[in-house]
């Protein structure tokens, strides 16, 4: 039951962060950041299994693997951008958080361009 470990650890970190925020708010921020990275690393191992399943499904559906790779990259960018923005918000920097989110969106759109182009190509081919 890894979720119990993670939740228990999260509760402890939260208590510490609340205590630290009074006297040393920068340490509380670092604590939250460290916890986030730790959870991310813990979950990353499990993501491999999910990604393998996706790859198998893609091969079964005879879909170009380029699309799946692009989607996974987009997913990664979204998670990292969300993570960074949340940290910034926790530190009270809402403006920076929104900038991080905006950068994430632009990068996502950039990566999604081949998919848009492919859809447009299909539509053009469908038209007489």
């Amino acid at each position: 039951m890894e979720i119990m470990n993670i939740v228990g650890f999260a509760l402890v970190v939260t208590v510490f962060a609340v205590l630290l925020r009074e006297g040393r708010p920068e340490m509380a921020l670092l604590l939250a950041l460290g916890f986030g990275i730790l959870v991310f690393i813990l979950v990353l191992g499990k993501m491999g299994t999910i990604i393998n399943l996706f790859r198998d499904l893609t091969r079964s559906a005879r879909v170009d693997e380029l699309y799946l790779t692009t989607l996974l990259k987009i997913l990664g960018i979204a998670y990292i951008a969300e993570f960074g923005a949340q940290i910034c918000r926790d530190a009270g920097e809402g403006t920076i958080a929104s900038k991080v989110e905006m950068a994430g969106k632009v990068l996502i759109l950039l990566l999604a361009l081949p998919i848009f182009a492919a859809v447009l190509e299909v539509v053009v081919r469908l038209l007489p």
Binding site: I50, F54, A78, Y79, E82, K105, A112, I115, V122
Partner: peptide, 29 residues
């Protein structure tokens, strides 16, 4: 595949973007 991918999407701002892209991916396939 699309349903599984949607489950993996983050819950906040970028979710809408990703939903559109996953939809396009299904459409093109």
């Amino acid at each position: 595949l699309g349903a599984f991918l949607e489950m993996l999407l983050p819950l906040r701002e970028t979710r809408r973007f990703l939903e559109v892209i996953v939809g396009l991916f299904v459409l093109i396939t």
